[in-house]
Design a protein around this nucleic acid. Structure first.
Length: 741
DNA sequence: GCAAGGTC
C-alpha cells in the first residue's frame, strides 16, 4: 500500500508529515526537492508538495488570436521562474504506482485548484478523481490529524470556481490588454507595453480619481494666527483656519501689545497600548514609514527571511499570535543575541500578546522563529529587526503619555497650545522605530501672566487631498478587497513598470489617465470594482449550484468579445490617443525647431536617447549616458533640459546640459578632424569631443569600437605600448557609446 | 508581450 499526500508548499508538507507520524523522514528528490516519507503497519506514505500553482493557463493554439480556448500547461513553460519544473518532476516520479492520493493543500479556492491540477496533470491516471481531501484551517498537529481522520471527496464545484476565476481573468486581462496594444500598432505602427485587468485597472482608476481631484482642486486662502511667548510657546488662535480676512485682521489688531492670561492648565495622562503583531500589510506599511521601502521590497526580504527559517510565513493577514507558538522558546532563541537579550530581560513573567482583530485561516501573524540569522542582506537585516522588536514590544507593558493643554486669553481672544511627553516608556523601550514625544512642559499655572512677544499672521492655502504612496495604496486595496495579500505589491509595481504612474507620492502619468479614459468608454466595468464583485457573485454561484462553470465562461466570453469588437471598430482613434499620451509621458523639453524633445529607446543600439517629435524632418538627437536622469531644471546657457550623470571619478553625480557640446565650439562636431588610421580596421581615426573631454575614435563605429586618448595616439603602432592602449579601451568605450548618436 | 493567483 502506497499513499501519496500532496500539500501546497514545502513548509506545509513538513508539518503534515510530522503531525501524522513521529517517524517521518526528510528526503530529497534529485538533491533539490524536499519530501517526507514514513512507513507504518505496512503502509508507505509519501508527503509531497507543490509550490503554489504548478500549472498555468495558456491560449491553446497560436492561431487562436483571441484567447478563449485555454488549456493548462506546466507553469515553467510560460512563466519566467522555472523552479516549478523540479517540483512537477518530483511529484511525477514519486507518485508513480501509488494506490491512494490525498489532497492536502490549503482549504480555499486557489488551494483546491492547486492540488487538483497537481493530481490531474502530474500524478495522472485520474488521481484527481480518486483522491481524498483533507480539510484543516491551521497547520497544528491537532487540526492535521483530525483532517486526516475525517477525509472527504474533493469538492468539484470549488475546483470549477477556481478554474473559472483563472479563465475569466485571462479572458478580460489578456484580450483587452492585447487589443489596446494592437490599437497603438494600428495607428502608429509602434509597440508599447500596455495592460489592463480585473485588479490593476480599478487600482489605477483609484489613483486617477485622486489625480483628477488634485488637479481640479481650487485652493482657498485662509489665515492662521499665532501668539509667541516665553518657553518657546507658540499658541494657536482657537478658531484655527480663519477664512475671513477681515476677521483675521481684526484679531491681529486687537491682540497688539496685549499680554496673555493663562486661563487653564490641564495635564492628563493617557495609556498607549503596545502595537499589534504584523500581518503582511502591516509590515509593508511600517517598513515604508520607517525605512522608505516599497511594499514589494519588503515582501521580497520577508520571503527570504522565511525561507531561511528566521521568521514565519509572511503572506498572512493575521494579527494574532496563538499561544501554541511557544513564546518562551522563541524568546530563549532570540536572547542568544546580546542586543535582543537586553530587551527580553525586561518582559513580564506572563506572556500575553496585544493582538489585532484580523485573522487568517492558515497562518498566525509574522513573528521570529527564534533561530538567529547570519549573513543577511542589508534589507533583510532591517526587516528582521523590525519583526523582532515588534514581536518583543507586543508582549510589553503599556506606555504612558502626558499631555499638557494650556488655554490663553489675549485681549479677549482665545489661544491654545499643547505639549506631549512620554511619562512611562513601557513597550516604547523595546521598539526603537517609534519616535517618542519629549516636549518640555513650561512651568506655568492658571492665573499666570505671559508676555506676548509677537502676534503672527500666516496666510496659507487649503491643500488638495494627499497623494497615495505605495503603502497607503495597498491599504486602500486591502480595504476594498481588491487583489490578495500576496499580489497587491506586484500589482502596484506593475503600474510603475507600465509607466502609468510615477514617484513615491504617486502621480498618474498621461498614459495612465488615458488608459482609464479609454476603458471608461469601452468597458466601464473593468475600471470600477464592479467586475470583481460580479465575478465574486457568479463564482460563488458555482459553489451553490446556482450556475455552472460553462454558463459563466460562455457569458464572460460573449461580454469580452463585445468589448473587443468595439475597441476594434475605434482602434485608430484609441491607438492615436494612447500613443500620444505615451509620448507626452516622455517629453523632456522643447526642441529649437519648435517640436518636442522626447526620451526614446533605440532597440538597435540598445541606448536611450533624446530625439525630436518632428523626426524625420528634424534630426536632432542627444545621447543619454547609462544611468542618466532627466532633471526638471534647464541649462542656463542654452535652455535645454539638464541631466544628472555619474561623475567621471565614479563618486557622486554631476548636473550637466543634455547637449554635451553645450557652450563648446561645435564646428568640430560637424567635421571631426582625421588624425590617423585605425590599427584595428584601417579606417580613419577621428578626434572627437565627449562629455569627459577629447578622445580619438574610429570612423567605423559602431562596427569597430577602437578608441584611445589623444595622448595615446602618438604611441599607436609601437608594439610595446599596445597593451596600454588596450587596457584603456574599456574606459574609453563608454565615452564613445555616449557619443554615438 | 498582455492577467491574477499561488509560491521558492
Amino acid at each position: 500500500m502506497h499513499e501519496v499526500i500532496i500539500s501546497e508548499k514545502p513548509k506545509s508538507a513538513e508539518k503534515i508529515a510530522k503531525a501524522l507520524s513521529p517517524n517521518a523522514q526528510k528526503k530529497k528528490y534529485n538533491r533539490k526537492i524536499n519530501y517526507w516519507e514514513f512507513e507504518e503497519n505496512g503502509k508507505k506514505t509519501t508527503v509531497l508538495s507543490a509550490v503554489g500553482h504548478l500549472y498555468s493557463l495558456t491560449s491553446a493554439s497560436s492561431r487562436d488570436r483571441l484567447g478563449f480556448d485555454l488549456t493548462w500547461v506546466p507553469a515553467y513553460e510560460v512563466e519566467k521562474q522555472k523552479y516549478t519544473r523540479d517540483y512537477i518532476n518530483a511529484i511525477k516520479k514519486l507518485s508513480k504506482g501509488a494506490d491512494k492520493f490525498v489532497h492536502a493543500c490549503d482549504y480555499d479556492v486557489e488551494g483546491t485548484l492547486i492540488g487538483y491540477n497537481a493530481l490531474k496533470y502530474a500524478c495522472g491516471n485520474n488521481a484527481e478523481a480518486k483522491a481524498s481531501r483533507m480539510k484543516f484551517s491551521t497547520l497544528t498537529k491537532k487540526d492535521i490529524v483530525e483532517a486526516y481522520n475525517t477525509m472527504r471527496d474533493i469538492d468539484i464545484r470549488q475546483v470549477d470556481h477556481g478554474i473559472a476565476r483563472h479563465m475569466l481573468d485571462y479572458y478580460y486581462g489578456m484580450n483587452i490588454s492585447s487589443a489596446l496594444m494592437k490599437a497603438v500598432r494600428a495607428s502608429s505602427s509602434r509597440f508599447i507595453s500596455l495592460s489592463a485587468g480585473r485588479v490593476q485597472t480599478p487600482t489605477l482608476s483609484i489613483l486617477v480619481d485622486r489625480e483628477k481631484e488634485i488637479q481640479s482642486f481650487v485652493p482657498e486662502p485662509y489665515w492662521m494666527i499665532k501668539a509667541k511667548s516665553d518657553y518657546d510657546i507658540i499658541a494657536d488662535h482657537v478658531e484655527g483656519k480663519i477664512f475671513d480676512e477681515e476677521r483675521a485682521k481684526k484679531i491681529y489688531a486687537d491682540c497688539q501689545g496685549a499680554d496673555a492670561d493663562v486661563t487653564s492648565v490641564k495635564v492628563t495622562e493617557s495609556i498607549r497600548k503596545p502595537p499589534i503583531p504584523f500581518n503582511l500589510g502591516g509590515l509593508q506599511s511600517e517598513a515604508h514609514t520607517v525605512f522608505g521601502f516599497s511594499p514589494k521590497r519588503t515582501q521580497v526580504a520577508a520571503q527570504n527571511l522565511y525561507v531561511g527559517g528566521y521568521t514565519s510565513y509572511p503572506r498572512t493577514s493575521s494579527q494574532k499570535l496563538p499561544e501554541s507558538l511557544d513564546f518562551k522558546n522563541i524568546f530563549a532563541g532570540l536572547a542568544k543575541d546580546p542586543e535582543f537579550k537586553k530587551h527580553i530581560f525586561d518582559l513580564p513573567a506572563k506572556l500575553k500578546p496585544n493582538e489585532g482583530k484580523k485573522t487568517d485561516a492558515a497562518h498566525p501573524a509574522i513573528h521570529p522563529t527564534g533561530v538567529l540569522p547570519s549573513n543577511l542582506s542589508a534589507d533583510e537585516a532591517k526587516i528582521y529587526s523590525l519583526i523582532v522588536y515588534r514581536f518583543i514590544s507586543v508582549f510589553s507593558e503599556n506606555s504612558k503619555l502626558e499631555t499638557m493643554k494650556v488655554n490663553l486669553k489675549v485681549a479677549d481672544e482665545k489661544f491654545t497650545f499643547s505639549r506631549k511627553r512620554v511619562s512611562y516608556e513601557g513597550w516604547l523601550k523595546h521598539y526603537p522605530f517609534k519616535k517618542q514625544e519629549n516636549d518640555a512642559f513650561p512651568p506655568i499655572n492658571k492665573g499666570d501672566q505671559l508676555k506676548i512677544h509677537k502676534i503672527l499672521v500666516e496666510e496659507k492655502e487649503t491643500k488638495p487631498p494627499a497623494r497615495y504612496n505605495e503603502a497607503s495604496l495597498i491599504k486602500e486595496l486591502e480595504k476594498r478587497e481588491l487583489g490578495t495579500k500576496a499580489t497587491r505589491a506586484d500589482i502596484v509595481a506593475k503600474l510603475y513598470d507600465r509607466k502609468y504612474i510615477e514617484g513615491k507620492k504617486i502621480e498618474v502619468k498621461p498614459l495612465g489617465i488615458n488608459i482609464i479614459d479609454t476603458l471608461n468608454e469601452y468597458c466601464k466595468d473593468l475600471t470600477s470594482e464592479e467586475l470583481t464583485r460580479e465575478f465574486e457573485r457568479e463564482l460563488e454561484g458555482i459553489d451553490t449550484d446556482k450556475y455552472t462553470k460553462e454558463q459563466i465562461l460562455e457569458n464572460g466570453e460573449k461580454e469580452v468579445k463585445t468589448i473587443l469588437a468595439e475597441i476594434n471598430q475605434n482602434k485608430k482613434q484609441i491607438g492615436e490617443k494612447l500613443y500620444g499620451a505615451y509620448q507626452e509621458t516622455n517629453v523632456v523639453g522643447e526642441c529649437s525647431c519648435g517640436g518636442k524633445l522626447i526620451k526614446r529607446y533605440s532597440p538597435r543600439t540598445k541606448n536611450t536617447f533624446v530625439g525630436c517629435s518632428n523626426f524625420p524632418k528634424c534630426k536632432v538627437t542627444y545621447s543619454l549616458p547609462k544611468g542618466a536622469n532627466m532633471l526638471k531644471k534647464t541649462c542656463p546657457t542654452c535652455g535645454l533640459p539638464m541631466i544628472s550623470i555619474k561623475k567621471a571619478s565614479g563618486k557622486g553625480r554631476d548636473h550637466v546640459c543634455l547637449d554635451s557640446n553645450c557652450g563648446k565650439d561645435v564646428s568640430r562636431r560637424q567635421a571631426p578632424e582625421v588624425v590617423g588610421k585605425c590599427p584595428e580596421c584601417g579606417k580613419d581615426l577621428l578626434k572627437r569631443s565627449g562629455r569627459y573631454g577629447e578622445f580619438v575614435g574610429c570612423s567605423g563605429f559602431p562596427r569597430c569600437r577602437f578608441t584611445c586618448s589623444v595622448d595615446e595616439l602618438n604611441n599607436l603602432g609601437k608594439d610595446k605600448n599596445k597593451e596600454d592602449v588596450k587596457e584603456n579601451k574599456g574606459v574609453s568605450k563608454k565615452i564613445v557609446r555616449s557619443e554615438a548618436k
